[in-house]
Write a protein that binds this DNA or RNA. Structure first.
Lengths: 330, 330
DNA sequence: CTGAAAGCGCTTACAG
DNA sequence: CTGAAAGCGCTTACAG
């Protein structure tokens, strides 16, 4: 068990630990010759600085924390890579944490092992937020809207996505619409539905209350909801806006079992532009939400905050990717 | 900037910092009454223990590190969730790090901010491995075979996967086979190819050298290789074993452009059982590698090592998921 | 049961 | 340019 510390290096090199520290940290006060010697010894002893010792004393950690609810399903993976890439570019390490809903997030956030945080998902109470604001820890939220001195959010324009879907379907001549809703307390879900229903209302088009199904952003839940809907004999709508692509696919699966053709009998538009969209048949028309750009903007925003900038809210617009799951009303 | 330390709590509660520490850590030496009082004060002051202070002193960190090359593409995301779940169950925190190929991995590993590591991907030199062995840090590798006192590996039986694919295709009557290779220095790639070619050799079936194409585990690379193969007018093989599902899909895309039908004209088997397999048409027959179980086993193995167990090598067998991309030779 | 004190490994003014 | 010393926030023997 060779636990080499700065002391060992100092002794071996015949200098003080202060000099070792200075040499190692590239401080230019130390004589080049001394420096090289220290570096040599450190290398030879396989010296690895202890982060805890360093961080206990140092003002900054050069670590960024990324907090995610889950890494599954290819949603956040790409984004994590993107954020990691940017952190590296700015000279920071990225630590990814999967958030445990039962465990308070705040302690980890305020641990002072990180200089800033990007929260892709995390439940914080009002009180937590107030504390976070007081702590001055630069933080970027991606799961809802908030702005404080040291807190920004970089989010999807989910309200806009909802409107966009509605307007696209209306433009194809559809009038009897349906929405596959996501998750009740999810900000994007709520916003997408709001945008969708507002656009219908603005166009003077009624939405049957039974035409809002629960999809929970999952294939299976959307499948079950749609299946039940058809089984109970409700009239088939003209078109469906699903809160995400997976639930659109679940919906299509149920329709297929009833021999209802997409897009001949019903049009479907999803949201996200998931990898699957271009693989399935028919290709799924969807709203591209630019997930990676969201990651890029979040990282940039975090570094702006770390650099002393003040919090703001940023919304990323989406656009429609037309494939083959929507058709003009005949 | 309210940075509350154990000192503040001690002062406010009118006790020593030792007592605060004991109260907070649930040590039963402290009088219940004192304990509650301290806990109250800590709560009121929003005290959050500093991890660095603690870890500098404490023997264990209760942290596990997971090292991944990339989180993109839905490969490792599910596994990360699985491992996180198990860590939680064992009372450990999981820190996920995306490995930077240019940056030495060893320092992070030996940081002593973690009690153990699972390495899904990481380049370590012979010397690094020796040091790792000396450091006694419990470590589980998933990207190649290795066993030391404190080091285990839990890996796919990739050689077996290759054999399995070959035997399945031979069993369908195919004799002119092709392999879409993955990445040259990847352990699983090499093993899959070895298993495949050994099985052919054992069956006395020749493999044309030009029938090993480069797929790099990617759709696009496999597409390009297959496209070039067809363009140059080589005879169409009976069946293809692709090193993973994505490259199988790239291969299919190229075939489709040449109006070659799967499985009527050519059979294709992939590897992994990626989410996509059941979505594409035709459904992709593949070798299920049980990625999640691999994660489960890796975590279990790590905790066994942490508990004092000694290193071993564990291989997970795969099995064939039959869909619609392979047919009997007619 | 409680507290004074040492020490974990490091950085950073401050002397020299 | 170099070193002695203080101190970051905590835990843990050790006295009392």
């Amino acid at each position: 068990m060779n636990k080499i510390t700065i002391k060992d290096v100092a002794r071996e090199a015949g200098v003080s630990i202060a000099t070792v520290s200075n040499a190692l940290n590239g401080s230019d006060v130390v004589l080049p010759k001394t420096r090289e010697h220290v570096l040599d010894v450190a290398q030879r002893l396989n010296y690895i600085p202890n982060v805890n010792g360093r961080q206990l004393r140092a003002a900054q950690t050069r670590n960024i924390g990324l907090f995610v609810s889950s890494m599954a399903g290819s949603y956040y993976g790409d984004m994590a890579d993107t954020i990691h890439y940017l952190c590296k570019k700015y000279g920071y390490e990225l630590h990814i944490f999967i958030v445990d809903e039962e465990k308070p997030l705040l302690p980890t956030l305020r641990n002072q092992s990180i200089d800033g945080a990007i929260i892709l998902f995390g439940v914080l109470s009002e009180k937590d937020i107030r504390q976070l604001a007081l702590s001055r820890m630069p933080t970027v939220f991606m799961d809802h809207e908030i702005a404080e001195e040291n807190i920004s959010s970089v989010i999807y324009d989910s309200y806009g996505h909802g409107r966009m879907a509605a307007e696209y379907l209306l433009g194809l001549g559809h009038r009897d619409l349906m929405h596959i809703f996501g998750v009740s307390r999810n900000y994007d879900s709520i916003q997408r539905q709001a945008g969708f229903t507002d656009a219908l209302r603005d166009a003077g088009v009624a939405l049957r209350p039974e035409n809002i199904l629960i999809g929970r952003f999952e294939q299976s839940a959307a499948y079950r909801s749609m299946h039940r809907y058809l089984k109970e004999g409700y009239p088939l709508p003209d078109a469906v806006f699903a809160a995400n692509d997976l639930s659109a696919l679940g919906c299509i699966r149920a329709l297929r079992e009833y021999r209802i053709r997409v897009p001949e009998d019903i049009s479907i538009i999803g949201c996200d532009d998931h990898l699957l969209c271009s693989y399935v048949t028919p290709g799924l028309t969807t709203i591209r939400t630019h997930m990676n750009e969201l990651g890029v903007e979040a990282a940039r925003e975090l570094f702006r905050l770390i650099g002393g900038g003040t919090g703001s809210v940023q919304r990323l617009p989406g656009d429609i990717v037309v494939r083959h799951s929507c058709a003009m009303r005949t």
